[in-house]
């Protein structure tokens, strides 16, 4: 019987193709299918924020420049990473990330919780020429970012596309996207106040690159960097890292995490 079956498969190459698909696809299906119901297991986080239009635009600058090639945004459940970068990353923190930017290589440090660690001024100087503030750095200088105006007119389309893939932006947010982007980078303007109503009091309104009269790609990128790790407090609520003896032989804190659950 198997022999007959296989002869048939071989004679018609199409049957062979079906066999390849049957053999190959099962691994993907079995591993990935349960992940689509995983949100049932992830606790809903009440304080989860959305990216403002300016932060989303900054995220796109981060993508456009390929920052993810050298910087991860995923703190693993290892004690040394928690000590160096902060509480390990939770699934819920990238709930609204299309695409995710976990990265695969650390030529530079992890950025998952870089938000708030350095001032806007430091970021502006560092991006303009990293060796001005970190002499040993091998990061490229992104001096053109401060000179490149940010395109804000199509941000409504960006938000609408984000909503189409599942991010809960409201009609009001989509309609005011361009205004909100300008407002966030222009403190004391009218637009700067209305953004707080839409995106919450936590939203950082600042001149970012130090120039409040124009909105550049540098403004957007700094706005994005400053919210990394700040979208929810979920990771800080109960982190097991400090409870583990630092000299524990297996520096894996997953187990501690599992026990807690």
């Amino acid at each position: 019987m198997p022999e007959f079956f296989h002869r048939k498969i071989e004679r018609t190459a199409i049957g062979f193709v079906v066999a390849i698909i049957a053999a190959a696809s099962v691994g993907g299906i079995v591993e990935i299918a349960p992940l689509f119901t995983i949100d049932e297991t992830v606790e809903n986080v009440a304080d989860m924020r959305l990216y403002t239009p300016l932060e989303l635009a900054g995220r796109n600058v981060y993508i456009q420049e390929g920052c993810y090639a050298c910087h991860s945004q995923m703190i693993r459940t290892l004690a040394d990473e928690v000590d160096r970068y902060g509480p390990f990353s939770l699934a819920v923190e990238s709930q609204y990330d299309h695409p995710m930017l976990w990265g695969s290589k650390r030529t530079g440090p992890d950025l998952a919780r870089i938000g708030g660690k350095y001032s806007d001024v430091w970021h502006a100087a560092h991006l303009n020429n990293p060796r001005d503030v970190v002499p040993q750095s091998n990061m490229p200088a992104y001096s053109w970012l401060a000179r490149t105006p940010l395109e804000v007119d199509n941000l409504g389309h960006h938000l609408a596309a984000q909503r189409a893939v599942g991010v809960p932006y409201t009609d009001e947010m989509i309609a005011n996207a361009a205004r909100d982007a300008l407002g966030q980078a222009t403190p004391d303007s009218d637009a700067a106040f209305s953004i707080l109503d839409r995106y919450g009091e936590e939203t950082q309104v600042s001149a970012f690159d130090g120039v409040a009269t124009s909105v550049t790609q540098l403004d957007a990128l700094i706005a994005y960097l400053q919210v990394l790790g700040q979208m929810t407090d979920a990771a800080y609520l109960d982190t097991a890292a400090s409870e583990l003896p630092p000299d524990a032989e297996d520096r894996d804190v997953t187990q501690a995490e599992e026990e807690r659950n």
Binding site: D97, H98, M100, A161, A164
Partner: peptide, 16 residues
Amino acid sequence: SYTVWPGVQDAMVQWW
């Protein structure tokens, strides 16, 4: 464009 896969699923699909 924006990928249809969010966060964890995107990571899994990407490395798959």
